[in-house]
Computed example of a mutant assay.
Amino acid sequence: MKEISVQELKEKMDKGEDFQLIDVREDFEYEMSNLGGTLIPLAGILIESEKIAKDKPVIMQCRSGKRSAVAIMQLEQKGFTNLYNLTGGILAWADEIDPSMQVY
């Protein structure tokens, strides 16, 4: 599984690179804090897979990186090859990039 660090994600955001960010957490988690990605909770990831780009890098994220890893494994079985897991998830983002971000 391909991974990306929070520092690499921040660089991509700062440079305005073309990628898609998918957040696989639940609604209440997303409302508390998010990185601006598209919310597709893990339970519906296969049902809503048409919302996920196949023609550019897609970074999957959750709270810690575990649910997004599960989502990637499911999607790779459906033929996706452009997926990256955000190592450490939003907890790592809050720890290393934005300490003011509310986490739980």
Rank of each mutant, 00 (worst) to 15 (best):
residue 72 I to N: 08
residue 37 G to T: 13
residue 84 Y to A: 05
residue 71 A to F: 04
residue 38 T to C: 06
residue 32 M to S: 09
residue 43 A to C: 07
residue 73 M to H: 10
residue 55 D to G: 04
residue 38 T to D: 14
residue 87 T to V: 10
residue 51 K to P: 10
residue 89 G to H: 07
residue 14 D to K: 13
residue 14 D to V: 01
residue 17 E to H: 07
residue 78 K to T: 14
residue 59 I to F: 06
residue 6 V to Q: 02
residue 72 I to T: 05
residue 82 N to Y: 12
residue 28 F to T: 02
residue 102 Q to T: 13
residue 79 G to P: 07
residue 66 K to C: 01
residue 21 L to Q: 00
residue 42 L to G: 08
residue 69 A to T: 11
residue 77 Q to S: 13
residue 100 S to I: 02
residue 43 A to H: 06
residue 98 D to R: 10
residue 94 A to C: 03
residue 87 T to M: 03
residue 103 V to D: 04
residue 84 Y to K: 10
residue 76 E to F: 05
residue 45 I to V: 15
residue 93 W to C: 08
residue 92 A to M: 06
residue 28 F to N: 10
residue 8 E to D: 15
residue 3 E to C: 02
residue 98 D to W: 06
residue 31 E to G: 05
residue 71 A to C: 13
residue 31 E to T: 13
residue 94 A to S: 15
residue 103 V to A: 04
residue 13 M to C: 11
residue 27 D to V: 10
residue 41 P to M: 11
residue 42 L to V: 12
residue 88 G to A: 01
residue 30 Y to C: 08
residue 30 Y to G: 13
residue 54 K to H: 07
residue 34 N to D: 08
residue 30 Y to T: 04
residue 20 Q to C: 05
residue 91 L to R: 12
residue 5 S to G: 08
residue 76 E to S: 14
residue 35 L to V: 12
residue 6 V to T: 14
residue 74 Q to P: 00
residue 41 P to T: 12
residue 89 G to Y: 07
residue 99 P to W: 05
residue 65 G to F: 04
residue 9 L to C: 07
residue 3 E to M: 06
residue 44 G to W: 10
residue 14 D to G: 04
residue 102 Q to F: 02
residue 75 L to W: 01
residue 104 Y to A: 06
residue 64 S to T: 15
residue 17 E to G: 06
residue 19 F to Q: 09
residue 4 I to G: 11
residue 66 K to W: 03
residue 50 E to F: 11
residue 80 F to D: 01
residue 23 D to T: 09
residue 23 D to I: 01
residue 1 M to T: 15
residue 8 E to H: 11
residue 102 Q to A: 12
residue 40 I to M: 15
residue 83 L to V: 09
residue 23 D to H: 11
residue 15 K to G: 05
residue 75 L to K: 01
residue 58 V to N: 00
residue 62 C to P: 08
residue 87 T to P: 00
residue 51 K to A: 15
residue 90 I to F: 12
residue 91 L to D: 14
residue 54 K to F: 00
residue 73 M to F: 02
residue 73 M to E: 15
residue 64 S to D: 03
residue 49 S to H: 13
residue 28 F to W: 10
residue 41 P to A: 12
residue 1 M to Q: 14
residue 75 L to D: 03
residue 16 G to I: 06
residue 57 P to Y: 12
residue 1 M to Y: 09
residue 25 R to P: 12
residue 102 Q to N: 06
residue 51 K to S: 14
residue 82 N to V: 09
residue 16 G to H: 08
residue 50 E to H: 09
residue 21 L to E: 04
residue 60 M to D: 10
residue 47 I to G: 08
residue 100 S to Y: 00
residue 89 G to N: 09
residue 80 F to T: 02
residue 76 E to G: 12
residue 95 D to Y: 04
residue 16 G to M: 05
residue 79 G to T: 11
residue 38 T to A: 11
residue 44 G to V: 07
residue 11 E to P: 01
residue 79 G to M: 06
residue 88 G to S: 13
residue 94 A to F: 00
residue 41 P to W: 07
residue 92 A to I: 11
residue 58 V to H: 04
residue 93 W to S: 09
residue 62 C to N: 08
residue 58 V to W: 02
residue 40 I to Y: 13
residue 26 E to P: 00
residue 29 E to N: 01
residue 55 D to H: 08
residue 61 Q to P: 00
residue 97 I to K: 07
residue 18 D to P: 00
residue 38 T to G: 01
residue 2 K to A: 14
residue 31 E to Q: 15
residue 31 E to H: 04
residue 83 L to W: 03
residue 96 E to I: 14
residue 18 D to R: 04
